[in-house]
Nucleic acid binder design. Structure first.
Lengths: 189, 189
DNA sequence: AGGTCATCTTGATATACATCAATTTTTAAC
DNA sequence: GTTAAAAATTGATGTATATCAAGATGACCT
């Protein structure tokens, strides 16, 4: 059950079948329609979400009313308001389905307990955060070092699956440029 | 011994004295002069560094020969090429002293072993990475949402100790603007 | 199919900020 | 303390990209 999740787990840490079972037992499966909000600011964030199928975005709306996309998630990715999740603070982000999606949710309390009984999971999630950290660092670097066109090209190389699937204006937002600019860039390639 | 490190450890996880002892036993202390490189591209990264005293920067030089500062570190901060450290890859970054500095270094192998004997340290470093992750996320957001002036103001609020201590052109680089712009901004405030 | 709404494109204008160049101020070295 | 080197400032100009506005294309609903 959840074969893709299973290989996702085994990619980083060699769990045995019982450990995987213990983990999957904690998960609950749900379907959500496009435009559904899994989280919005103020919510108590008790879960993180693994995408079985579909596409989501996490974004933030600043004081000026502008929204800024922090991450996308498609199949085999995790998404949530991780800051709120880890620090037990209310959400600052929206998490919204860009497509009809099928999600596994993992509860924070269950996870904490799992850490106690099987410390290997502490390792798994440390590795996961570390990878996310590196990806973010590269996003910062890309922003400092590249102009819009180069940033877009890099995005396409890194996330070819996202580029096909996600509307222009969402990608532009993620890359920190206007939809008009992205349109011109696409045209010029 | 290493009182500041001790309280740094206890801030996130309640270690007992033996555990702290086990940790500090792994550390080795060294002094470095200003401009010394602790790491440079190609090095095997076997250590991460805790700053007892001084100031350092980690930066990257891109294909165009431009350098980009990824992080600063002063007293009570950790610094290294974390991507290389965690993934056992050769360094991509330079780590350089901006002042004469006193450093504790922690070896990766020792740390891995410590994880085995005292899993609490796995938790400690997971929390540390998580915090760094959130800080980076905010840096991305700040870059997307603010103009140069607002970014500088935010930097000053967040890191008042750095702002005083680090040369103009290093801060400008970190914030992704030219030294000239930062100078004008400072003048206009 | 037709109509409505969302998304994308294209052109004209505006602006924040980089770049270049020259000068002043600060720091470091002997 | 004098000189050299590094860092910071200031002004003039250029450019990437935002913004504004209008129109074209595409998707979705009944």
């Amino acid at each position: 059950m959840y074969l893709q999740l299973q290989s996702h787990l085994l990619k980083d840490v060699d769990f045995n079948p019982e450990e995987i079972k213990a983990f999957t037992n904690l998960l609950s499966r749900q379907k959500f329609n496009k435009k559904t909000l899994l989280l919005q600011p103020g919510d108590k964030v008790t879960k993180e979400y693994y995408v079985l199928k579909g596409c989501l975005k996490a974004y933030y709306i600043d004081e000026a009313g502008q929204d800024h996309i922090i991450q996308f998630a498609i199949e085999d990715w995790w998404i949530s308001d991780f800051e709120a999740f880890f620090n037990a603070k209310p959400a600052q982000l929206y998490v919204e389905c860009l497509e009809d999606s099928e999600i596994l949710s993992l509860d924070k309390l269950d996870l904490e307990q799992l850490y106690q009984t099987i410390p290997k999971f502490e390792r798994f999630f440390r590795l996961k955060v570390t990878k996310a950290f590196v990806a973010l660092r590269n996003r910062v670097l890309s922003g400092l070092q590249n102009d819009s066109k180069a940033r877009y090209k890099e995005f396409c190389e890194q996330y070819p699956d996202l580029e096909k699937r996600i509307p222009n204006y969402n990608i532009a937002n993620y890359l920190g440029m206007s939809p008009e600019s992205l349109s011109r860039i696409r045209n010029s390639i």
